[in-house]
Design a protein around this nucleic acid. Sequence first.
DNA 1: CATGAATGAGAATTCATTCAT
DNA 2: CATGAATGAATTCTCATTCAT
Lengths: 208, 208, 208, 208
Amino acid sequence: MHDMIEEGQAEIEAGLSPQKQVILDAARDLFVKYGYEGLSIRDLAEQCGLAKATIYHHFQDKQDIFLSVLGHAALTMHQRIVEAAARGETPVEKLRAMVYAYCDMLVERRMVFFWSLRANAETEEQLRKFVQTHKEHLLGPLTQIVHAGIEGGDFRAVDAQMSALCLLGMLNASMAYRIMFDEVQDSADVAARALDLFLSGISTKTCQ
Amino acid sequence: MHDMIEEGQAEIEAGLSPQKQVILDAARDLFVKYGYEGLSIRDLAEQCGLAKATIYHHFQDKQDIFLSVLGHAALTMHQRIVEAAARGETPVEKLRAMVYAYCDMLVERRMVFFWSLRANAETEEQLRKFVQTHKEHLLGPLTQIVHAGIEGGDFRAVDAQMSALCLLGMLNASMAYRIMFDEVQDSADVAARALDLFLSGISTKTCQ
Amino acid sequence: MHDMIEEGQAEIEAGLSPQKQVILDAARDLFVKYGYEGLSIRDLAEQCGLAKATIYHHFQDKQDIFLSVLGHAALTMHQRIVEAAARGETPVEKLRAMVYAYCDMLVERRMVFFWSLRANAETEEQLRKFVQTHKEHLLGPLTQIVHAGIEGGDFRAVDAQMSALCLLGMLNASMAYRIMFDEVQDSADVAARALDLFLSGISTKTCQ
Amino acid sequence: MHDMIEEGQAEIEAGLSPQKQVILDAARDLFVKYGYEGLSIRDLAEQCGLAKATIYHHFQDKQDIFLSVLGHAALTMHQRIVEAAARGETPVEKLRAMVYAYCDMLVERRMVFFWSLRANAETEEQLRKFVQTHKEHLLGPLTQIVHAGIEGGDFRAVDAQMSALCLLGMLNASMAYRIMFDEVQDSADVAARALDLFLSGISTKTCQ
DNA sequence: CATGAATGAGAATTCATTCAT
DNA sequence: CATGAATGAATTCTCATTCAT
């Protein structure tokens, strides 16, 4: 895997006080580990070395933290994927770079499934809208490349968005499996094989 | 979609007291809806029309309920998939039947991802082992068919298990998307398209 | 220590169904270990290999069990002490035999203090009356011997009951200390030294 | 009895927030009255005029409260006994003052037996260690005086610690009896008689 | 910018007990 | 004589959140 990020803890977003960043980074890890209900403000505060009340100084409530985490994750994913795409020439090269970048983030943050975070019932509607708004950040660039590949004659005339979605699903499943059961396998390997299967599926060339 | 199950609530497993079945069915729905931490025993009891204490008469604790739900789900999935496979002749036909059966269950029980259920930290290790034991129920039959397809010359010589895993991932993502965002689309359609992409990927025939 | 009882589990009292005895024996151990509130009917039932409801077949309620245990303990103590007294000739010999018998029971059943069992508030009044009634079983024989010693000119003219009470207190404290902290010391030794101190205190002879 | 403490509720220990003191004082009374299992946090909170959760703001859990109570009791006992000892000249005088101080505390706080408080099974080991650490506070000063008495030729060459332990046992039993059954008797009287018996036992002089 | 104190609501779990069988 | 099923009340403890400082 190519562009390993040294330590994914502290990417400072414009307009975010450093203290907020600390909280968000800790919150991300805890949400991923324990889910929405499973993260307790007490734990979060302890993790940050702050008092519980201080958390409320920076965020309105738990949902606020949650949605902030989600927003930042989506944004970062987007940035990395777009950056990765820029490193390739052909659609296939671009796709490969994006896939690696995506899998890196999955593993690095153990964010196995982006959607597996599950908020409580009241949040759910809000969450749905939120995800609907931000999913483009992830799905959009992929879809676009698939589209370009179709236009360029590299790929068959499939439904581009649906294909991108399937690619993400394959990667999610593969990485989840690797993380849960066979940590020995290199994630780049796993990702490569899933990507090959995908490319065989959409490529116009004879399969092998 | 073909064999829609009329009401997925009450398949009686051998050796399970009916009262336990009632609790498990309700628990399944609530776990899927709210996640592990999100299900409260109080809600579960109310849903079943029982007193909280009665739940604890039948199950040791929340984890016990959780793992029971998981176990039964895995078993049911297995049964349905195996049944479905029996309805096809060729590997492709078998695969298609299995995919439909799987997606039916996903939608019917809104079990969007089988693995997205997430227990608390202490459970996690136990959960991991549990899933490791039971994943075969789901992955095994698929892998077997892919294998048969390879042997029979229908499929390319890919890693059968990895391919099966990718197929599941594609279906999970597709169905999750459909459930979350465009409920209008027919899930059979969505499933069919994902399957076609997959088949194109592993088929030995010229793509297209 | 002389008359070690082989296994203090099953002394059958006249008129007690064997099943009741089993329950009482288990209850005694649990009350001693955990106190009144600390014993749970569930644990008691498990310990006996019975269902909870079966306990209620034999006893009215928890208090009933508690008072039965107390009654039987008082009775057994009484019997053993009286038996022991019969084995001595002089008051001092009798006292020594009683003390050994008492300490044997303390250790054997870890009933460090007879009175340390504490029931809940509502029971307390009932308990007080009960203990008041039964304390004679323990204190009476000792007091009587002290009295005899005074009459016979062996002991000083002290308040016999108060002296007996003090002797019990010394033994309780000594045995409790031994059980809690230095299990190495022989309980017969410990008892002997406490008794010597007591005898020095009430004896008419020059000390030493 | 000489130095009766007017109201034993509010001795402020250095370094303890006043709120913690309030809770500890209430907890002491309730533990003594009902035992470890018998005290409910709800009752304790009500007694303090606080919300249940507030108790947990100040203490980690029930055990924490319990051990705190024990620690403070041991400390206070120690202080009072040492103060009392300073008021006497000869070992006998010192002992007498200590005994009165001890019995005062027993009655005042109805702490009939210092050791009769019994925690649940998991605590027990922790409790044992705790008591082992703190028993010196109570036993140490007494043992020391007995030792001094032996050195000075006032007392016989007995095992000082064992004697001190016996003295405590006598006092405990005597006071418990008085509190439970004949409240009419003056506790100073009761204590005096137990002490006289003890002194007769260890004194080198001819017994009367 | 930060926090200690406080809390009402609710979490999971256990309690002693009853009753139909 | 025995028990499985059931339960209302109580248990310890945690939750997200507020507020005065």
